[in-house]
């Protein structure tokens, strides 16, 4: 129990509750269920992407191409829709595309041995460039999308839109996947101690590549949801969103050095940013504050992580041992 209270997730949940409490004291409307559901729905893309990013970070890598993958997959979804392809087929194609884009990153990291930051820095510009090549910079607007395509994420079931339900399903799957399956645990092992992972029969590079594929699939899923929800697709959608995703992970306590982090942490990290983003206009602070606030949150979070993770010096003295 005490270990749970001391845990990062509990602290973050507390921070979010305090934040909500402070806002509620002046603007009670913000904490009404419908409003909170809206915040959750609005944060769904960030939560989904943060889970993909988390898997990559667990394996000691980073995926800066998620937002570009999102934009490219979203655009392909919109274009396929324009050609009259049925929605299920669109979804399948786009998820396969996302997996393929993730595999490109993964193979470059695994087979060629290029550091992931360099690979994804390169692919993020390439993916966006490809959108431009496909469209010549043209937008796909709401009137060019079918109603079925646009309405799916907004369709409300049991009080929550489908987009929010997708996030719930992804969170559930990831909780089980990361705690209860051998593959899920192997991400922790590979990032926590790559050397030992080899002795356990794990292929470090292959596991990293799988992480990139997972991140790619989730980026593509979010790509469709994003394009359909905002009913527009163009080269620059979700520009810079990869940093929000990394920020959500860092705030959620996912160790950038790999091997440590939980689904709950990543989700709460995303929700923290989501609450701030949605609360700013309500409390009358200019949305231009958002960037600086999330930047500060990242720095505070990483400073906090480091304090927790710092190993105490060696304890040799008997007297010190008793006190420790």
């Amino acid at each position: 129990m005490t270990s749970f209270l001391k845990s990062r997730e509990a602290l973050l949940a507390l921070a979010i509750l305090v934040l909500l409490g402070v806002i509620a004291s002046r603007f009670p409307a913000f904490v009404e269920p419908a409003s909170l559901a809206n915040v959750f729905n609005d944060t769904a893309p960030l939560m989904i992407l943060a889970l993909g990013q988390m898997v990559v970070i667990l394996t000691k890598c980073i995926d800066l191409s998620v937002a570009a993958n999102l934009a490219l997959s979203g655009m392909v979804a919109a274009l396929l829709n324009g050609m009259g392809v049925p929605l299920p087929l669109i979804l399948l194609t786009v998820l396969a595309l996302g997996a393929a884009l993730g595999a490109v990153n993964g193979l470059l990291v695994w087979k060629v041995g290029i550091p992931s930051i360099v690979v994804t820095l390169g692919t993020m510009t390439i993916f966006r460039g490809v959108i431009f090549l496909m469209t010549d910079g043209a937008w796909v607007n709401a009137h060019q999308m079918s109603d079925a395509f646009k309405s799916l994420p907004r369709h409300v079931i049991l009080g929550l839109p489908v987009m929010a339900w997708v996030a719930v399903v992804v969170i559930t799957i990831f909780t089980v996947f990361l705690t209860r399956t051998p593959l899920g645990r192997s991400f922790y092992a590979v990032g926590g101690n790559p050397h030992a992972a080899v002795y356990t029969g794990l292929d470090v590079g292959r596991t990293q590549a799988i992480a990139f594929v997972i991140s790619g699939i989730l980026a593509a899923l979010t790509g469709y949801l994003w394009v359909a929800r905002y009913a527009v697709a163009y080269v620059d959608i979700a520009g810079g969103f990869e940093l929000d995703v990394v920020a959500a992970c860092v705030i959620g306590g996912i160790a950038i050095a790999g091997g440590a982090g939980t689904v709950g942490g990543a989700v709460l990290g995303a929700l923290f940013l989501g609450v701030i983003k949605n609360a700013l206009p309500v409390v009358g602070i200019s949305p231009f504050w958002q960037l600086a606030i999330s930047g500060s949150a990242i720095i505070i979070a990483v400073a906090f992580n480091a304090r927790q993770g710092r190993k105490a010096g060696r304890i040799i003295l008997k007297s010190a041992e008793a006190g420790a």
Binding site: V176, T181, P182, R185, G192, A196, T200, G259
Partner: peptide
């Protein structure tokens, strides 16, 4: 060097061959 600091004792013992439930989960 061949163990995992971030994982529990049980998981370090069983990583790679953990007992499964009937749904195939750890």
């Amino acid at each position: 060097t061949v163990l995992f600091d971030e994982l529990t004792v049980a998981e370090n013992i069983f990583l790679g061959h953990a007992p499964r439930t009937r749904f195939g989960l750890i």
